[in-house]
């Protein structure tokens, strides 16, 4: 059996079961102001959230992270790596964010691997939640990353009225449910899911046509939209870019980070650490002797958009998933879907 149902009021059955093996992270507030935090009691969990400030990447690729410590003794260094390998479970993560994690998984593997990200990710269980009330900023439907999920979950929940439909996506998920009191599923439950999916797909306020978009943007490096955003008054409905970096920091597929050392006051021991960085910041592309390969705001906002449209070096793996966080967070109201429309000449 790969599907069950559970009454909404009994959702704590799942929670209690998960807590036995995992540290649980979930959305902590309703609406838009939610954040993913550690949840220790079911009352803290708000599955009625629209979106969070930071995406779940904060758990796997945190804003600050220590890579290793070093200690200098008699001119030789000893180093000690810092790994966090706690078993974590994400409860109630939306399809767009699951797709973003799948992209980051690919990004951080390959020829060179990022051991810090992958070690954490390996120990994670994903309990996803399909979106039936998409945020007014999101456009995942245009990108095929939502509102309902097809892959990447251990357990998938869908709100089908007074119950959640539970679908199993992995052995891990199956094991977790074996010991939980869940009810049998009927064909009607699946029909209800399907009905709700179709209904939800009609609710989107924002859309982005992605056909040929990477090619279009690669050919539009001198388009006036970039200087409108970077230096002039913005595009219709927006102000000029502030270069505040918010868009990239809240983006679930933005991966860029800075690496730096700090030493304690003895100057003999310290930490090599990394910190989320943003291509929107002036210092990002700075090199020795005050060279800077992206000193113009115009070049910086263009690079970010290029990256989200899949035309930068991260390719598809750092491309947009349509979560809408950058639109909501931008003080200048810059809307990536509108930029895409302008580039398409629509």
């Amino acid at each position: 059996m790969n599907a069950f149902t559970i009454e909404k009021k009994n959702i704590h059955f799942l929670f209690d079961q998960f807590r036995k093996d995992y540290k649980i992270y979930g959305p902590t507030k309703p609406g838009y102001e939610s954040t993913f935090e550690e949840i220790t009691s079911i009352d803290q969990l708000h599955l009625d959230y629209h979106s969070t400030v930071l995406p779940p990447k904060k758990i796997f690729h945190p804003p600050h992270e220590q890579l290793f410590t070093f200690l200098k003794e008699k001119e030789t260094y000893t180093t000690k790596e810092i790994f966090l390998e706690e078993k974590t479970l994400l409860f109630g993560i939306h399809p767009c964010d699951v797709h973003a994690l799948l992209k980051l998984d690919k990004f951080f593997s390959g020829e060179f691997t990022d051991i810090y990200y992958l070690k954490r990710r390996k120990n994670t269980c994903i309990v996803a939640l399909n979106c039936v009330e998409p945020s007014k900023y999101s456009f995942c439907y245009s990108l095929g990353t939502g509102p309902f999920l097809e892959e990447g979950y251990d357990i998938l929940l869908t709100d089908i009225g007074t119950e959640y439909l539970i679908e199993i996506g992995s052995d891990e998920g199956k094991k977790l449910l074996e010991k939980t009191t869940v009810e049998k599923v009927t064909d009607a439950d699946f029909h209800e899911k399907e009905r709700r999916q179709k209904l939800t797909e009609l609710k989107f306020k924002k859309h982005m046509n992605t056909q040929w978009l990477p090619q279009i943007v690669s050919e539009s490096l001198n388009h006036s939209v970039w200087s409108d955003l970077g230096e002039r008054g913005g595009i219709a409905g927006s102000h000029a870019c502030l270069s505040c970096g918010s868009c990239s920091l809240v983006c679930p597929t933005c991966y860029c980070y800075d690496v730096y050392d700090t030493v304690d006051i003895t100057l003999q021991k310290g930490i090599r650490a990394r910190e989320l960085d943003s291509c929107q910041l002036l210092e990002y592309a700075e090199v020795a002797m005050h060279g800077n390969f992206r000193s113009d705001r115009t070049a910086r906002i263009r690079h970010w958009m290029l990256c989200k449209f899949g035309a930068a070096a991260g390719g598809h793996n750092s491309g947009c998933v349509g979560c809408g966080r950058c639109i909501r967070v931008c003080p200048s109201k810059i809307d990536i879907t509108q930029v895409a429309r302008i580039l398409r000449g629509e």
Partner: peptide
């Protein structure tokens, strides 16, 4: 650091005061 307060605000998972509450915050500059 030369970058804006917004960066540190995001590190702390804060809602943007300008966009969510229309509070005139000097953070972005």
């Amino acid at each position: 650091r030369q970058h804006p307060v917004c960066v540190e605000c995001k590190y702390r998972d804060n809602e943007c005061l300008i966009t969510s509450k229309k509070i005139p915050c000097m953070g972005p500059v």
